[in-house]
C-alpha cells in the first residue's frame, strides 16, 4: 500500500470513529427513559460515569414505568438511618469503607445521603463539613490559619470522613504523620530533636486556626515556659515593662529570635536549637 493510500485509509477510519461516537448514546438506556420525566434528577448524575443507571438503586420499577402517577418506584429513599446507607453499601463497601463501621460518623447516625448527592451536585468542602461542624466555621477566618477559604487545603486533606484507624478521623495513625505530609521538612530525624515535635504537633499548634502567629496554641515566651523553666532568661519574668524596654524575649520572634530551629537541629552545635 502506498503512503498516500495509507493516509486516506486512516482518515476514513477516523471519520468512521467520529460518526460512530456521535451515534452511540452518551448514557445508559435506563437513565434515558427516566430522563423523559426526571430531567432535573438525571442532570449531573454522579453515577453516570460508572455506568450505573437509575434502576441499580431504585429497582426495575416496571409498575412505575407503566403508570408513574399511581405507582412509585420499587425503592425510594429518605434520611432514615436504616435504609439510606444499605443500598449504597451494596456497591460501596470493601477496602474503601474498611473503617466505616464503628467510626465517629457511623455511630453518630450519619448516613451516606447526608453528605453525598446521587443526583446532581451538592455542597462541596468546607461548607459540607461545616453544615454539621459549624463550630469550626469561625476558625477559617482567624488571623493564623490554613488556606481553607482559598480552596488550597480541604478538610479531607487531613481527615477521612469514612473512618480511619485514628480516633480523630485523621489519615494515618498519628497527627504528626498527617502534618508532615505537607510540612515535610519537619519530619526529621534530626541530630538534636525537640520533644513535642516528635510526639504530636498539636502540643504547640492548633491546626484549625489560632489567634497566635504560626497557629500556635499560646504565645512565646509563655508557650515555651510551659516546658522550660531554668536559670536566667529561661525562667525570667516577662511582663509589660519588657515591652517598653524592648526585651528580645517579647518583641520580634521572642524566643525564636535566637532559638529558630525549634523543630529540630541537624547541626553539631545545635543542642540549644540555635543552630
Amino acid at each position: 500500500m502506498t503512503g498516500g493510500r495509507r493516509i486516506v485509509t486512516r482518515l476514513k477510519r477516523l471519520l468512521l470513529l467520529l460518526l460512530l461516537s456521535s451515534v452511540f448514546p452518551l448514557a445508559s438506556s435506563a437513565a434515558e427513559v427516566c430522563e423523559t420525566c426526571h430531567r432535573s434528577q438525571t442532570d449531573g448524575f454522579a453515577h453516570r460515569s460508572n455506568d450505573v443507571g437509575c434502576t441499580a438503586c431504585h429497582g426495575t420499577s416496571e409498575a412505575h414505568l407503566s403508570n408513574p402517577v399511581v405507582s412509585s418506584p420499587d425503592t425510594t429513599f429518605s434520611l432514615a438511618e436504616d435504609d439510606a446507607g444499605e443500598r449504597c453499601v451494596s456497591c460501596h463497601e470493601g477496602s474503601r469503607m474498611m473503617y466505616w463501621q464503628g467510626s465517629g460518623h457511623e455511630l453518630a447516625g450519619t448516613t451516606c445521603n447526608l453528605c453525598h448527592r446521587s443526583h446532581g451536585e451538592g455542597l462541596s468542602e468546607p461548607e459540607l463539613c461545616l453544615s454539621c461542624h459549624g463550630d469550626l466555621r469561625s476558625s477559617q477566618h482567624l488571623p493564623s490559619r490554613h488556606p481553607i477559604a482559598e480552596g488550597k487545603v480541604n478538610c479531607t486533606d487531613c481527615h477521612s470522613p469514612h473512618g480511619s484507624a485514628n480516633e480523630n478521623l485523621l489519615h494515618g495513625d498519628m497527627a504528626t504523620d498527617v502534618c508532615t505530609r505537607c510540612h515535610s521538612d519537619y519530619r526529621g530525624p534530626f541530630l538534636f530533636e525537640h520533644d513535642p515535635v516528635t510526639e504530636d504537633c498539636t502540643i504547640c499548634h492548633k491546626p484549625h486556626g489560632s489567634v497566635q502567629p504560626a497557629m500556635l496554641d499560646s504565645r512565646p515566651p509563655f508557650l515555651c515556659q510551659q516546658c522550660h523553666m531554668g536559670v536566667n532568661h529561661v525562667g525570667e519574668l516577662n511582663d509589660g515593662g519588657g515591652i517598653a524596654a524592648r526585651s528580645p524575649n517579647l518583641i520580634g520572634k521572642s524566643c525564636l529570635n535566637c532559638h529558630s530551629r525549634v523543630h529540630g537541629s541537624n547541626h553539631p552545635s545545635g543542642a540549644r536549637l540555635t543552630r
Binding site: Y99, D185, P189, F190, N266, R275
Partner: peptide, 19 residues
C-alpha cells in the same frame, strides 16, 4: 554565623489493612 537547614531524608512505608 551558620545555621543548618532541615536535612534530606528518604522514607519507605508499608501498610496492610484487613477487614
Amino acid at each position: 554565623g551558620g545555621i543548618a537547614t532541615e536535612p534530606d531524608y528518604d522514607q519507605t512505608a508499608l501498610s496492610l489493612n484487613a477487614s
